[in-house]
């Protein structure tokens, strides 16, 4: 596993732990009304699990197992992917905090979406040439 994959998969696992905790909190709050504002956690819950867990794990594993190049750099333009990794996690954090404090249109949440867009663009540009036949 390349170093960046280890970072992405670990970040994905942490997102899983955090996102499940938000989900468990909301499910408990549906059972006993100890937190009437629990639905503010819904957008952060979805964000962390869909993008922090599922998307990030998929990209981290793709970076590792997709066909490599015969000539170095064998993984491709890895700096693009590192930038994508930082932007993705910054974006998720901004959306989580922004949507929690002020709803989905909070400026921080909007900025987070811009970071996420930049991240997925970079990650797609990075992965695109790796989608090829082995030895191709």
């Amino acid at each position: 596993m390349p170093v960046l994959s280890t970072w992405m998969v670990r970040a994905a696992l942490l997102s899983l732990g955090f996102g499940f905790a938000l989900g468990a909190w909301m499910l408990t709050a549906k059972a006993i009304p100890f937190d009437p504002t629990y639905r503010r956690l819904l957008a952060p819950h979805i964000e962390v699990l869909l993008f922090g867990w599922l998307l990030q794990l998929a990209v981290g594993v793709a970076l590792w197992i997709l066909p490599r190049f015969e000539k170095p750099p064998k993984y491709g333009r890895i700096r693009l992917a590192w930038t994508g990794f930082f932007l993705l996690n910054t974006g998720i954090a901004c959306v989580v905090i922004g949507s929690y404090v002020g709803g989905p249109s909070h400026p921080l949440a909007l900025a987070g979406h811009v970071f996420e867009l930049a991240a997925v663009l970079l990650l797609a540009i990075f992965l695109w040439p790796r989608v090829k036949p082995f030895m191709g």
Binding site: M1, T6, V9, R10, F20, A24, T28, A31
Partner: peptide, 29 residues
């Protein structure tokens, strides 16, 4: 039936954290 939802939340939370603990040492170069 609230107890069933709480039990469900606890089971899934423990499972999720368990996955993190289980897979963490397997994530390496």
């Amino acid at each position: 039936l609230g107890w069933a939802l709480i039990a469900s939340a606890i089971c899934q939370l423990l499972a999720g954290w368990g996955v993190v603990i289980l897979l963490w040492p397997r994530v390496k170069e």
